Computed example of a mutant assay.
Amino acid sequence: MTSATNTISPGTLGPAAVGGDVPDYFALLKPRVMVLVIFTALVGMAVSHGHVQPAIGAISLFAIAVGAGASGCLNMWWDADVDAVMSRTATRPIPAGRITPGEALGFGLFLSCASVLVLGLAANWLAAGLLAFTIVFYAVIYSMWLKRATAQNIVIGGAAGALPPVIGQAVVTGSVGIESLVLFAIIFIWTPPHFWALALIKAGEYARAGIPMMPNVAGPASTRRQILWYSIALAPLGLVPVALGFGGIVYAVIALLGGLGMIAFSVRVLNNREGEAEKRAALGMFGYSILYLFALFSALLAEQSLGLFRPVLA
């Protein structure tokens, strides 16, 4: 299967912009994504073997969040044409005409530079460099190239969303350790089954927008199988923190049950292929995957920050 060709050029705007207000500019930052970035970066800090002053930690988290928002803003600037033809994004500030592409571009570039500079001055330049790499990877490599070029866009592009724990550990230790790399791997493998579940439902809109998402290129049946295989790979990967000694008993239970749940929801997606049953299964997978990742990282944060850590392997 092949996707349709989108005739609107990237970064263009349909309606004439009338000038945005503060909520419109805040919406450009993709605040829900920012919350996830702050959370996973905080967990990256928590699992690190080190200490950071609370003020520096707070400033660093703020800078990481702003950097993530900046990359989201640049993504919205470039993808204004795609957003305009998809129902879930058509009301975003640029396609809705509340903010011009030029304003969004300037805002995103300013926040990108400011966030990297603040993080470098507050914490260290390794963390700042990783944040700069994340912004460039998401805004340029993913948004401007991968998203419109390959059905593996989410797989490769998922690296950007998986980097916040690595940046968080770099803030605390000035280095990158195995703990944050494992968290990176978990988010990286989690991303395809999470996003492809939604893509199964939105395949028609992606086709109209000219985006080669997996259901449009490989077909829904292949996408369902890949969701299952990624979930099967994710389940044991989620237990690696236990084997490495930074995930305790609480985490082990959540990771084991949560991983089995991911597989169960994937099987449900595989077996429900038509009509409302397909939609319910895909939405169920999408929603559960969010809960899974939140529970997994919450367990690590609670064990490391609240004194709840009890090793499984003594």
Rank of each mutant, 00 (worst) to 15 (best):
P241M: 04
V22A: 12
V176T: 06
Y292K: 00
F309G: 09
A4C: 15
L28T: 02
D24M: 07
L198G: 02
R273G: 11
L257P: 12
C73W: 01
L126Y: 08
A264Y: 13
N75T: 07
H51Y: 15
L131N: 05
I211F: 05
L306W: 15
N272W: 02
S71D: 03
R268H: 12
G14A: 12
G50A: 09
G210E: 03
A132T: 05
K202W: 08
A199V: 08
W78A: 04
N6K: 10
I8Y: 08
L121R: 15
T12Q: 15
M214H: 14
S87A: 11
M262Y: 10
S266L: 06
R273I: 05
P15M: 09
P31K: 09
G102E: 14
G168C: 13
V312H: 07
E179I: 03
T100M: 09
M144S: 12
I94M: 04
T40S: 01
L163M: 07
A127F: 03
W190Q: 00
T7Y: 10
A314V: 14
L126M: 08
A4F: 14
P212I: 02
F265G: 01
D79A: 11
A70Y: 07
G219D: 14
E179M: 08
D21C: 13
G219F: 15
I187W: 01
D79Q: 13
A221V: 13
G204C: 06
M213P: 00
D24Y: 07
W196H: 04
L131V: 03
L131M: 10
I56V: 13
A80H: 05
S180D: 01
F133Y: 09
Q169N: 12
P93Q: 11
H194A: 02
A199W: 00
I59A: 05
P54R: 07
R92D: 02
Y230Q: 05
I290Y: 03
A90E: 10
L301N: 09
A96F: 01
L260F: 14
A90H: 11
F133W: 08
A65V: 07
A151G: 12
L291F: 15
R208H: 11
L293A: 04
M1Y: 13
G20K: 04
E179P: 03
V250C: 12
I178E: 13
V312G: 03
Y288S: 11
I8C: 12
L42W: 08
N6T: 11
G259W: 00
G157V: 00
L126G: 08
V35T: 08
R32Y: 15
I263N: 10
L119K: 01
A68G: 14
G102A: 13
G97E: 06
A123K: 00
L237I: 03
A252M: 03
F195V: 03
L313M: 14
N272K: 11
I141G: 03
T2E: 11
L200I: 06
L239H: 03
G261V: 09
T100F: 09
Y142E: 02
